[in-house]
């Protein structure tokens, strides 16, 4: 007897997981101190868990972070399953659900990487703008302190300061 198994991409980033669950129609909700009372009688939830609209014998299926990855908590036998949603009623098996989530997670992860790259680009660009502004201000301040009159021009993106004084 032989078997082939396949694991999903480890779900390590909560923002990416949340986005993937949303795209998949699992209507995720992050459990907080404010909303935990709304779910305690429907599942064994804890703060920071991400619940879904998937329900089984144990209550709402949820993702829980084990310190390394987010894992789906569900009834092993998938007994008494349903979807708790006004718009989505079709329950998929856990394996099929995780398989689809896996694909969407990878797409969302790529988006996440692009967002991080864009944030880094903006950070570098802002640092450049700040550096130029600081250099300009320092030059003008020092020039005036030393008795120069200052005329400023902008020439093709460069700042030109003409400092003049009589001696």
């Amino acid at each position: 007897m032989s078997a082939v198994i396949k694991t999903t991409t480890p779900f390590t980033i909560s923002e990416v997981l949340f986005a993937a669950l949303t795209k998949l129609g699992a209507e995720p909700i992050i459990i907080t101190a404010e909303n935990i009372n709304n779910f305690q009688n429907r599942s064994n939830v804890a703060i920071d868990n991400i619940i879904t609209n998937r329900k089984d014998y144990n209550g709402l299926q949820l993702f829980r972070f084990n310190g390394k990855v987010w894992q789906l908590q569900h009834d092993q036998d998938e007994y008494e399953t349903s979807i708790v949603s006004a718009v989505n009623k079709e329950y998929q098996s856990v394996s099929r659900f995780l398989n689809e989530l896996n694909g969407i997670y990878q797409v969302c992860y790529q988006t996440h990487l692009k967002n991080l790259a864009e944030l880094e680009r903006q950070k570098i660009e802002q640092a450049r703008i700040d550096r130029v502004a600081a250099t300009r201000l320092q030059a003008i301040t020092e020039a005036k302190a030393q008795g120069y009159s200052v005329k400023e021009k902008n020439i093709r993106g460069k700042i030109q300061l003409v400092l003049t004084r009589s001696v």
């Binding site: 020439i155 993106g157 460069k158 700042i159 030109q160 300061l161 001696v167």
Partner: peptide, 17 residues
């Protein structure tokens, strides 16, 4: 009266000529 003039050009990276 003699005049002294300094022209500073600050480029896009903050370098000065």
């Amino acid at each position: 009266m003699p005049e002294q003039q300094i022209t500073l050009t600050i480029d896009e990276e903050g370098a000065i000529t």
